[in-house]
């Protein structure tokens, strides 16, 4: 099994196309971070304004307010994170998961490897493991690169970010924006990016499942992405106010949707990991694990019985 995983990893990371997704994520970080760096003084000023808002004119904010953790945090700024996770990362995961089986099927290489001794279930498990590693590595790379760029441009320091609810920070708590000490900020953002990896693994599982019964990678990726977007739309309708009665059905199914639980990476950002957050996180992680297990089992069942005609 380990040999198969190694082979699949070697195939994945020797393909130039694999690096397009990493390059896109790096470009996105630079596209956001470089302008901030160019207008560093204005951003700094605006953050100081945020911190001193409601304190009166005799308050002066001293010290450094724009530091390394600002970049990874700004990448998770709403609505940026929705676009990045629900569209960009989901697209990469769907493309990779979709091509894992359907791509090899259409290229004919699946018949070459299936005339070798390893059992089909082992081939499927190896592909699943490698795709999960790839999906997680996307989120980890995204976070790490954002940290690296942030620290390279702005150096060390605490995180000051206006999007944060006031009850979340440690240290002085001004009205407009909390200050989170550097260590706590790195921990919080690290957790968020790791949980983002879990979300992407779930999206990839869906794509791999669709890939197990489709004959073309684009069909598989398109179908998986379509399902994710549909689920996002349904979830958005389900989050509408209760006063809108005709959306009651969507409100009912929203808690069970894959995309609802794919948002689990937002939990540490919103509340930190207090008791309530841990419960919510555990619940969402359980749902995602369930979805992954169902997609894995369904994909394996289909793949084991599938006729290789191409």
């Amino acid at each position: 099994m380990l040999a198969l995983v190694r082979i699949e990893l070697s195939k994945l990371y020797r393909r130039r196309g694999t690096y397009v997704s990493f390059a896109c994520l790096a470009a996105l970080v630079l596209l956001v971070a470089v302008p901030i760096s160019c207008y560093k003084e204005k951003v700094d000023h605006s953050l100081r304004d945020e911190l001193s808002s409601g304190m009166g004119d005799d308050w002066v904010v001293g010290g450094k307010v724009l530091a390394g953790p600002f970049v990874p945090r700004v990448m998770l700024f709403w609505p940026m994170r929705k676009l990045v996770v629900n569209i960009l990362l989901a697209l990469f995961a769907a493309m990779a998961g979709g091509s894992a089986i359907a791509g090899e099927y259409s290229a004919g290489t699946l018949r070459t490897i299936l005339t070798r001794p390893p059992a089909r279930w082992k081939v499927f498990v190896a592909k699943f493991v490698v795709m999960a590693i790839y999906a997680a590595s996307l989120a980890i790379f995204f976070g790490l690169f954002a940290f690296i760029v942030g620290y390279a441009l702005f150096g060390r320091g605490a995180l000051v970010f206006a999007d944060m609810p006031a009850d979340m920070g440690s240290g002085p708590r001004p009205m407009g924006a909390p200050i989170i000490q550097e260590g706590a900020a790195v921990q919080m953002l690290g957790q968020a990016y790791l949980l983002m990896g879990v979300s992407i693994i779930a999206a990839m599982s869906l794509a791999l499942f669709v890939s197990s019964f489709t004959s073309h990678p684009l069909t598989a990726a398109g179908a998986a992405l379509g399902i994710l977007l549909l689920s996002t739309i349904v979830g958005t309708l389900g989050s509408a106010p209760k006063e809108i009665e005709f959306l009651a059905f969507f409100r009912t199914i929203r808690p069970y949707l894959l995309t609802t639980h794919m948002n689990l990476y937002e939990i540490p950002l919103a509340r930190g990991l207090d008791q309530a957050a841990r419960v919510a996180l555990t619940s969402s992680a359980g749902w995602l694990a369930g979805y992954c297990a169902a997609f894995f089992a369904g994909g394996l069942l289909v793949f084991r019985r599938r006729d290789i005609l191409c």
Binding site: A3, L4, R6, I7, S10, K11, R14, R15, R16, A107, G108, T109, L110, R111, T112, I113, T115, R116, P117, P118
Partner: peptide, 27 residues
Amino acid sequence: ALVESPALYDYLSGRKNLEILSDMSGG
């Protein structure tokens, strides 16, 4: 076995293809 037209990994060298397929058969 060679079933119909040979299907191999275009992005890998001929030798790497053989190494991968050899490893799949136990090396």
